[in-house]
Write a protein that binds this DNA or RNA. Structure first.
Length: 283
DNA sequence: AAAACCGCCTGTCGGC
DNA sequence: TGCCGACAGGCGGTTT
């Protein structure tokens, strides 16, 4: 049975792809102007200080941390983007003021090029940070280790799951644990690790934790290789989608046969999140 | 402390 | 066909 797929948010592989594809166009470029079309899109500070502290500065590097994109400026300040559910960053060549992009909230004007922050739902934000991290970015400060780095391992995850009664699905979505993981890759990872999403974190055995760590790394790496998952709203800076959707094992496959055992994939709300899993393979 | 729940915001869908 | 309530969802905030 088909239904409307709301799994649309950029997660780690999507943000990583956006970062990789922005670097050749943006790195080393000067921000000649900043056009704010909706000032609420600026999470910190107020929009006037935001412009004052970033206009005319050079973008010396672009990094990713969790689901955040970080533009490092040559004055030591940083621009942090969070795309949340429907945010997109588009490279544009037409810089004329009458080039109206639907849902455009902010535009960085560079040399002969622009970077447009499109965000229909207005959940996404851009922050300017200097030395001190504002309280709105507490979550950024508390992010756990990057899942593709060595310090995201069995020891780390075991410590985090110890005494946790919550369901493993929701624990993976906690960015202090599953940094950069969202609704798609949480489900994909649990399927690959053969762990039922409703299992309480504390009940996972050492072997299951090892499998989960491996599964997370494999899923994320594969999705990066295919430049992310486009089900509805994620697009890369040049406007094209990612190619991982056809490789998904459970997400968006409700009612379709499990690739391992043929049982129909189920969808259920777990901790208020639409969750896909194989009721037979995942224990 | 941690788990559960709420609200932000807007497009899309299903029911009538 | 058009209206409208329900739904989705990351994450910060609030309540339990």
């Amino acid at each position: 049975m088909d239904y409307y797929y709301n799994e649309r948010m950029p997660e780690l592989p999507e943000v990583e792809t956006i970062k990789n594809e922005l670097v050749p166009y943006i790195k080393g470029k000067r921000i000649k102007d900043i056009v704010i079309k909706r000032k609420e899109i600026i999470g910190f500070p107020n929009h006037k200080s935001f412009v004052k502290k970033s206009k005319g500065k050079k973008i010396i590097n672009i990094r990713r941390r969790g689901k955040y994109l970080i533009f490092e400026l040559n004055n030591g300040n940083k621009l942090l983007f969070h795309l949340k559910l429907s945010g997109r960053l588009f490279l544009i060549n037409d810089l004329s003021p009458d080039c109206e992009l639907k849902y455009e909230r902010l535009r960085l004007v560079l040399n002969h090029q622009g970077l447009s922050f499109i965000e229909p739902r207005m959940f996404g934000r851009v922050y300017l940070i200097q030395k001190n991290i504002p309280k709105q970015l507490k979550g950024f400060q508390e992010l756990g280790p990057e899942p593709l780095e060595r310090d995201f391992n069995k020891t780390f995850l075991k410590a985090k799951l110890k005494n946790r009664k919550g369901k493993i699905k929701s624990l993976l979505l906690d960015q202090r644990i599953g940094c950069g993981i969202g609704n798609i890759y949480a489900d994909e990872s649990l399927f690959r690790a053969k762990i039922h999403p409703k299992r309480s974190g504390a009940t996972l055995s050492d072997d299951e934790i090892t499998r989960l760590v491996r599964a997370i790394k494999i899923c994320l790496k594969a999705a990066i290789r295919y430049k992310g998952t486009t089900l509805s709203d994620y697009f890369r800076p040049k406007g094209i989608g990612g190619n991982y959707a056809s490789h998904l094992l459970v997400k968006a496959r409700e009612g379709k046969p499990c690739f391992i055992c043929g049982t129909l994939i189920q969808r259920e709300k777990i901790s208020n999140r639409s969750t896909h899993f194989c009721p037979r393979c995942q224990k």
